[in-house]
């Protein structure tokens, strides 16, 4: 059962073909690795799926509530509502706000109270606020940041900021989570706990697509990989097959490296 079908996606920026005829499927519940050298179009792919960019042509079919819908050109907030959450390559937190507030904002799309509820402090608004706090603190416990709940997000260490961003995206109740280089800039200890975190996210039944440069990490976590290079998909398959694929070796190490 596929949660996401990418069918012949093209993304053109002026004369530059950032993605050319990309097709792959994401199976429900799996951890899919999306790898490739710098400038391969990985983040562009994420931007297309999460609604930041609208692909020039092709189809993206997302399964939600036992229905497949075509999500091309949906706005990011609509995609979040449908159940696609993401993190960013360069951490994007609400850095002047507290750690708890960051996660509470993640609950935005699953809550309803409005101006009148806020000003009149209706009972349903109060109950909702309590629920938001409870759920947020649970997600903070899940990533291990609950003891920092009342600190400003900008003051956290880089590794913790990454984790907070993951907690915030989890707070939107996603069925598909897009992680854009979550291990970038982390030390080995932080990376190790991140791997555990990704496994426990997967255990919750959330499908994960992972962009990562740390090959050891990707090969360890993902059962299946998709490799992009210069906007073209050059391979997909299991970690072992990818590691031995001459095209992949060529993309990373240059022509001739595969023969050596």
């Amino acid at each position: 059962m596929n949660i996401l079908d990418i069918v012949g996606i093209n993304m053109r920026f002026g004369g530059l073909m950032a993605l050319a005829d990309i097709s792959f499927n994401v199976v429900k519940g799996e951890i899919l690795g999306l790898i490739g050298p710098n400038g391969a179009g990985k983040s562009t792919m994420f931007n297309c799926i999460s609604g930041v960019l609208k692909p020039t042509s092709g189809d993206m079919l997302f399964e939600t509530g036992n229905r497949k819908i075509r999500i091309n050109g949906y706005k990011p907030e609509k995609m979040t509502y449908l159940g696609v959450a993401r993190t960013f390559q360069n951490v994007r937190l609400f850095s002047a706000l507290t750690v708890l507030d960051n996660v509470r904002i993640g609950r935005h799309c699953r809550t309803r109270s409005n101006f009148f509820g806020a000003v009149l402090r209706t009972r349903s608004q109060k109950e909702e606020e309590q629920r938001i706090v409870d759920e947020s603190i649970n997600w903070l416990k899940f990533v291990g940041l609950d003891k920092f709940a009342f600190l400003t997000a900008g003051g956290l260490s880089y590794g913790f900021q990454r984790k907070l961003e993951i907690a915030r995206s989890l707070a939107t109740d996603p069925s598909l989570l897009l992680l854009d280089e979550p291990a970038a800039g982390m030390n080995p200890k932080e990376t190790k706990s991140l791997v555990e975190l990704i496994h426990s996210i997967s255990d919750l039944g959330i499908t994960v697509i992972l962009i990562e440069h740390d090959m050891k990490l990707v090969m360890g976590i993902c059962k299946r990989l998709v490799v992009l290079d210069h906007g073209v998909m050059i391979a997909q398959g299991g970690p072992r097959a990818i590691r031995e694929n001459p095209k992949v070796i060529e993309a990373y190490l240059g022509r001739g490296a595969a023969d050596a």
Partner: peptide, 24 residues
């Protein structure tokens, strides 16, 4: 409130805010 937090999110980072489901 939810409203105020949405405003703060927009002020801090509008791209991240929209990825939290806030209609900017």
């Amino acid at each position: 409130s939810r409203l105020g937090r949405a405003w703060f999110a927009i002020r801090e980072d509008s791209i991240a805010a929209s990825s939290c489901g806030i209609n900017l």
